[in-house]
């Protein structure tokens, strides 16, 4: 049977992809950011997950204003890196475990989560930057990736509680997939940042740190944070952190924090990263 063994959360700031693509890893601006991923790169090289369910959001790349799915799951065999306006990132295509993706899609729908199934889709920095942060620059990604896209652009996005419950349902779906697979779930985006209006540049390190603490200490609190609190406390784009709750919901009650990293700034954003392992 397939099993979820660990969860990873990380910001997916586009600049962090640029830094890697342009070989600026040792630049003084970037160095303290990438150093926080060194532990995780070694960890994942040992863990060797077979599949990552990667929760992210599209930033007006694959989805325009014509279609706004709240939860969409990628079910094609392969996804290409998106051209976000300056050419696609020089990273390998993303290979899906399509059998498992379709299995998860059908299981979730039966479990009353009405997923959008998407086949033709390019994946933007929201998905590819986390892969680069954990795997560096390989010729091919050493893992299958199931993209799970969440609308956090047009309000209302899903509630934190709904995200949590989707995570729980994903865990049930994984457990009923009849193949012996080591599966991780990743939540991406955040932490505090605001990219628009006169309040742009808002960062709330204290709030972010408490969020990181409570992923283990008090996840029930996180689950019920209303949208207005994300907006007031973490800037208009901090809402991306609801995607971390899909990851957290999928892990269940018994978890251990293995690694954490927090750094301000990357571009306009507070970078947060955490590795959580499921206790067996």
């Amino acid at each position: 049977m397939a099993r979820i063994t660990a969860g990873v959360a990380t910001s997916h700031v586009p600049l962090l992809g640029v830094g890697i693509d342009q070989g600026k890893m040792d630049d003084p601006y970037f160095k303290p950011i990438y150093e926080g991923y060194e532990w995780s790169k070694k960890w994942i090289a040992e863990e060797k997950p077979d599949v990552i369910i990667l929760v992210y959001n599209d930033h007006a790349s694959a989805f325009d204003m014509n279609l706004i799915p709240t939860f969409a799951i990628g079910c094609a065999d392969e996804f290409q890196p998106a051209d976000e306006g300056w050419g696609p990132r020089p990273v390998p295509p993303v290979n899906n475990h399509a059998d498992m993706a379709w299995h998860i899609a059908q299981s979730l729908i039966l479990d009353e989560f009405d997923m959008t199934i998407i086949n033709k889709m390019d994946v933007d920095h929201g998905l590819t930057v986390p892969l680069s942060l954990l795997f560096g620059q390989p010729d091919a990604w050493p893992v299958k990736v199931i993209p799970l896209a969440v609308n956090v652009v047009t309000y209302p996005p899903p509630s934190g509680n709904r995200c949590w419950m989707l995570g729980e349902a994903i865990a049930r779906a994984v457990e009923s997939f009849d193949e012996d697979l080591n599966v991780q779930i990743w939540g991406t985006g955040g932490m505090s940042h605001q990219l628009q209006g006169p309040r742009a540049g808002l960062i709330n390190a204290e709030w972010d740190q408490k969020f990181l603490d409570d992923l283990t200490a008090d996840p029930e609190r996180l689950r019920h944070i209303p949208h207005i609190e994300y907006l007031r406390e973490t800037g208009s784009e901090g809402i991306e952190m609801v995607m971390w709750l899909i990851m957290r919901g999928a892990l269940g009650p018994m978890i251990k924090e293995r690694h954490r990293h927090f750094h301000v700034p990357a571009s306009n954003t507070a970078v947060g990263h955490i590795v959580l392992e499921k206790e067996t």
Partner: peptide
Amino acid sequence: MSGMSEEDYKAMMMAGGRSP
């Protein structure tokens, strides 16, 4: 959008961003 010069804005971000 913030009404600041690029230099001032960058300096604010390097110093930890805009306080809430």
